[in-house]
């Protein structure tokens, strides 16, 4: 399973220019994913028991990695402000709880979030490019991105054109990511692969490499709008891709699983996976994020259980 891609294939990055042919040849030349092996390895790593002080550390690390997200049609400026307050001070009763990494909102609410988070160190991420389906023209997607960046977003979460990817038009996806990256300016670009729609693990590996070669700062599993979202095997394959990408090019790319991570146990499984697959260089909020909303309350409840010794109840935490 653990095939080191860099030793078995030649990176096309050395090529002066990436063409449709060379891109296809490279992506289809990536070693196939052993589905049974991948699922088994993810399951084995997920069975690891993390307790007491290690668990306490893992909880705090997971909290600091959360991208606190609200992506609903019913989002209001008030809801975004409330979420920002929670991002800075997740548990108002306990100042020792770390702040989360970022909040993630729709482009029209970025300005609200920026105002609420000024000077706190919590970053503002915005989805863009006709999220979540990505079904629009490139011009509209670029404008969507600019709207968010001009409003002050630090990070842009774009979706790839899955239709183009699945029909084999890799160059189109590549160019789109490159254009959005250019429109981002200083903002970090996270590329959402929407792995739930990519059908196979081989496609997840190809899409990961494609996004990284096109300039992604982060690769992200899902929009959170379709199920399955961030499953452990998918996250593992993406972590292998960033590890191998660094080995091949020296450049580090972050990973963000999003959707379906609801409990502390899930979050800790992800942290184990990061440590074992990519290495502890990725175990920081700078390189690994957890896209979630309900997860934060569960982390806080577990944290409170560890500090007070009694089981916590959801009535005593804010609703998202």
């Amino acid at each position: 399973m653990l095939v080191n891609v860099s030793t078995t294939t030649t990176s096309p990055l050395a090529d002066a220019e990436i063409t449709d042919t060379s891109l296809r040849a490279f992506l289809h030349g990536l070693p196939g994913v052993d589905q049974v092996g991948a699922e088994q390895r993810a399951a084995t790593l997920a069975s690891r028991s993390i307790k007491t002080s290690a668990k306490a550390q893992a909880i705090d690390l997971a909290i600091s990695m959360v991208d606190l997200t609200t992506l609903e049609g019913a989002d209001t400026p008030g809801k975004v402000r409330a979420m920002c307050a929670k991002a800075v001070r997740p548990d108002p009763a306990d100042p020792s709880v770390p702040k989360v990494a970022a909040v993630c909102v729709y482009p029209d609410l970025v300005a609200q979030a920026v105002r609420a988070l000024k000077g706190t160190g919590v970053r503002v991420a915005s989805v863009a490019t006709a999220f979540p389906s990505g079904r629009s023209s490139l011009d509209v997607k670029v404008q969507d991105t600019k709207l968010a960046v001009e409003a002050g977003a630090d990070e842009i979460d774009m979706v790839i054109d899955r239709g183009a990817f699945l029909s084999g038009r890799y160059m189109r996806v590549f160019e789109e990511i490159a254009r959005i990256k250019a429109a981002c300016g200083d903002a970090h670009l996270k590329v959402i692969l929407e792995t739930g729609e990519l059908v196979t693990y081989d496609n997840v590996r190809r899409a990961s490499w494609l996004a990284m070669m096109a300039g992604a700062d982060f690769i992200k599993t899902s929009t959170g709008k379709i199920s399955p979202a961030a499953t452990l095997p998918v996250t593992m394959i993406m972590l292998e891709a960033v590890r191998d990408f660094r080995a091949a090019t020296g450049e580090m790319v972050g990973v963000k699983p999003a959707g379906g991570i609801r409990t502390t146990k899930d979050a800790i499984k992800h942290l184990v996976l990061v440590n074992e697959v990519a290495g502890d260089d990725w175990l920081t909020p700078e390189w690994y994020r957890l896209g979630a909303s309900s997860l934060l309350n569960d982390l806080l409840m577990q944290r409170q259980k560890m500090t007070t010794g009694r089981y916590a109840g959801p009535d005593h935490f804010t609703l998202d």
């Binding site: 010794g309 009694r310 089981y311 916590a312 109840g313 959801p314 009535d315 005593h316």
Partner: peptide, 9 residues
């Protein structure tokens, strides 16, 4: 004791 201290009971 666990049920008595449980915050969601």
């Amino acid at each position: 004791p666990w049920l008595a201290s449980h915050m969601d009971v």
